[in-house]
Amino acid sequence: METKSKVSYYRVNKNRYAKNGMMVLTILACSLIVLIVVGLTIRSAPILFSRPLSELLFSTEWKPFKGQFGFAPFIVGTFAVTGVAVVIAVPLCLLTAIYLSEYASSRVTRFVNPFIDVLSGIPSIIFGVWGILLVVPFISKYIAPLFNVSSNGYTVLAGGLVLSIMIFPIIINVLLEVFKTVPNEMKDASLSLGATKWQTVKKVLLKRALPGVIAAFVLGLSRAFGETMAVLMVTGNVSKLPKSLMDPTYTLPSLIANNYGEMLSIPMYDSALLLASLILLMIILFFNIISRIILVKIERNYQ
């Protein structure tokens, strides 16, 4: 009897240790985000206290040597490139995912899925090189003349195009998972009323999957905001407000990657770059929170 109870204590204790250990690890992982925000805030405090926030966010003058740090060109550049990427990616991803999940035969999906997986595994530097070799010259030779502007091709549009292809696989894969959660019987119910597949997709599949579809695009959006290497290589990196898709631009991640570790003797420069990181992080957090709110609202209406 005694040995028996000892053994069972051993099991119970093991369970307790495992539970506590895993809890500590979870807390550690979650506190990272807090640590990062605190760290970035402390390091960017010097510049935050020396200048009004409105000047930092809205001024377009970026002249570190003169002590002028206006982040507007970078913020606008980041939104512009990401915006173009999402505008291109949304319809393409949605239609691709609908085709693969609803129309394509299993033979086609088995053939196509590896391609999407490979696409998602390609390092961003390769997308950057591909952008320089193909997209940039294509824009300078064919697209820019269409709008009667001369451009060397290093533009917002180039960044957006390259970026859209980079976020393609992640969005498609999430969409496919989301579509799988819609029960076949629900689609059958629509079909049995004489609806066509397309009507069923529009009115049942997309409607039911809407929260997941939004989540997929926010995931792509977050990825796009932070993408550095490929964008840095094709956008020209000029710290001026872009006026059209054919202008060069400079994004926040590119700014940080290009300059951190150099020229840090300039007063406030180090602090300014860390503020750039903080702004980027805040933008991504903001979009995540907004998407959560939308998801909760939608789910309340239909679940």
Binding site: P183, E185, M186, D188, S192, G194, T196, Y302
Partner: peptide, 20 residues
């Protein structure tokens, strides 16, 4: 097939109301 299905109502094992 859509015309044909219109002639037949279907009740499944579990009710599946459409998401609306």
């Amino acid at each position: 097939i859509t015309h044909l299905r219109k002639k037949m109502g279907l009740l499944s094992q579990r009710p599946y109301p459409l998401p609306m």
